[in-house]
Structures are given as C-alpha cells and as structure tokens.
Amino acid sequence: MGPQPKILVIGSPEGLADESLWKSFQSQYRVRMYDFPTLDGFHTSLRNGECSDIVGIVRLGLNIPQGIEKVGQGWTQRGLPYFPDSLRLIVNFGHGYDEEDIQGLQKKGIQFFNTPGGDEATAAVGIYLVISVFRQLGRYEKMLRQGDFLPALRDSAKTAVDTLGRHIGIVGMGAIGKAVARHAAGLGMYIHSLDRPNLRAALSLQGDDAASLSLPPITLAQSLDELVGKVDCVVLACSYTPQTHHLLSKEVFARMKHGMRIVNIARGKCIDEDALCGALATGQVAAAGLDVHYNESVTLPSHAEQERLPRALPLVSFPPFYPFSN
C-alpha cells in the first residue's frame, strides 16, 4: 500500500470544521499546513520543494498566521505556472471564482471546487443592507458613537424612510435573489425584476411546485433601464460576467430615480465605483450598501483617513462601516 496522498491546507480549520471531521481528514491524508511567509516561497515549494508532490489544495483562507502574506483572490492565476503535475484537485472556501484561472486549471487536469450554499445567509445580509440604506443605520450608528446624538436625530427625521410600500428591483433571480424577494415582500415592498424565461416559468407554476418556491408577486421589466426607472432601490444579486461588468455605470445611474438606493451583494466589479461616488455626491443615489467592493485586497482606510473623507456621502459598508471613497 502506497503512502497517503499529500494535501496542502491553506488556513486553519478552527471555527470552520468540526473537530472530529478534521481529525478524520488528517487520518486519511498527509496534511501539510501552509506556513510560507511569502507567495514567492509558496511558488518555489510547489515547483521543487515540499509541495512538489501534493495531489490537492484546500484553501480555507481564514486564520492565516500573523506575518504570512495572504493567499487572496486570483491566487490560482498567480500559482498556475508552478502547480506540480501531481496536483489534481483544488477546494476553495468561498463562493466566488471569477478571478481564478478555471480554464488554465482544466488544461492541466486540475479540478476546481468552491463552497456551495449560503443563499439565506447572503440574502439576510442583503436585507440588512436594504433596511440600512433606507433608514441609513450605518451612518447614524457612526454619528452616535461619535457623540452626535442630536445631529443624528435631526438628520434622521429628514432622511430616514421606511421600506413599507417601496419598490425594489432585484437583478439576478437565482437562489439568493429569490430569497431577497421573499424577505423584501415581508417588509411590505413591491418586487421587480428583469424578465427572464426561467423566472417567468417559476412564476407561472401552479399547485405544490409554486408553493415550494414561495415567490411573491413580481413585476417583470424588459430592460435594466426600465427597471431602474421604476424602483426605489436596486439590489444586485447576479453573477459577475463580462456582461455584468460595470452593470451600474454612469449612464445607468443617470436614468435612475433621484434618491435611488443601491445594494450590492453580488461582486464589486458589477458597479463602476467612480460613477457611484459621483451619483452619491449629487444625491442621485441617496445611499448605497456594499457587501463587496471593486478591489477587496487593499487595506481599508485608517480611522484618521476616514475622518478626512466627505461626510456628505451616506454610504453604508458592511463590514465594517466606513465612508466610501474611490
């Protein structure tokens, strides 16, 4: 019987995997825990070092020891030239893979898997952000923490509004978008979405099949321009593709209702952030709640830098809360 297959694990399973499951995993494979200070050191090991005979990589991405360079998004593109011939499988903890070189991996006979599920959790964040951009919760929380109780109270009386009776447009009606629609309907909102054959078919179902979907009434728009002209809030829950790159652009912002709210639980690159900043500055967009950002690998601004950013931009960012600037 040959040696057990060697698996490289990037990040600690603590808090992610049950202890008994982790012990079982360790009993079946030779586990090499990632401890390379730099990506260059990692790549060297893949080519002719300790990792030159691995058959699989599990990237958890969390709990990386201090002082070790982060293995962030796009890591398979950077590592592709160094991956050994023995590598057959990559399991990536996370939903996104648009920045990974899937075609390049396939050409080398390497299968790539990401994490399924999480639809309800993502939808819950989306609904939190919807409520936040209408009530501007993030902005007023920050003001309260700074001791500006009365200014927050006076400002909220003018600008904080309820979701009841508002119209929400959801772009991307997969599992996450459908969950957002159900929860938004529970807030008394009217649901709009783009007309797509699969959504129209779901809405036309009768009997038990329709009940299992639990979809509220949805008004279908024939185009994005038509959708953004009718609703009070746009929620992006779509995949990132060349077609959805900068889906919300300067031109699209100009066609929206004045005082529009924006929520993005899709991918940061679905929004032209320069255009968003401009729309926020003019009030065309009243507030935006972003679960994702265009470039998530950069260091967030320090507290001192945050204080120098324009306070006129009531943008909610989750997590953490900080004013947004390009």
Rank of each mutant, 00 (worst) to 15 (best):
L8F: 01
G11Y: 14
P13V: 01
G15H: 09
S24Q: 11
S27W: 01
Y29N: 14
Y34L: 09
D35W: 00
P37W: 00
G41W: 03
G41N: 11
S45C: 06
S45L: 02
S45E: 15
D53L: 00
D53Y: 00
D53T: 13
G56E: 00
I57C: 08
V58E: 01
R59D: 01
I68L: 15
V71H: 03
V71F: 03
G72V: 04
Q73H: 12
G74D: 09
G74L: 03
G74C: 02
L80P: 12
L80Y: 07
P81H: 02
F83P: 06
F83G: 02
P84F: 12
D85M: 04
D85N: 12
L87F: 06
L87V: 09
V91D: 03
D98F: 05
E99S: 09
E100M: 00
D101F: 01
I102Q: 08
F113Y: 15
N114F: 12
P116S: 02
T122W: 05
A124W: 07
V125I: 14
I127C: 00
F134I: 11
Q136Y: 13
R145E: 03
Q146I: 06
F149L: 08
F149E: 04
R154S: 07
K158E: 04
K158V: 05
V161L: 11
T163A: 08
T163N: 12
R166K: 15
H167I: 04
I168W: 01
A179E: 14
A181D: 06
R182F: 05
H183L: 13
A185F: 10
L187T: 10
M189S: 15
Y190Q: 15
I191E: 05
I191T: 08
H192D: 10
L199I: 14
L203P: 08
D208E: 15
A210K: 15
S212T: 11
P216T: 11
I218T: 09
T219W: 08
T219L: 04
S223Q: 05
V228A: 02
V231Q: 05
V234H: 12
V235F: 07
L236V: 07
A237I: 06
T241R: 09
Q243A: 14
Q243Y: 11
T244F: 06
L247T: 12
V252K: 12
K257P: 01
R261G: 06
R261W: 06
I262A: 06
I265F: 11
D274S: 05
C277A: 10
Q284L: 00
A286N: 09
A286C: 04
A286D: 07
A288V: 15
A288W: 13
A288R: 15
D291V: 04
H293D: 01
V298R: 15
V298W: 06
S302R: 10
Q306G: 02
Q306S: 08
R308D: 01
L315M: 09
F318H: 08
F318S: 05
F324C: 01
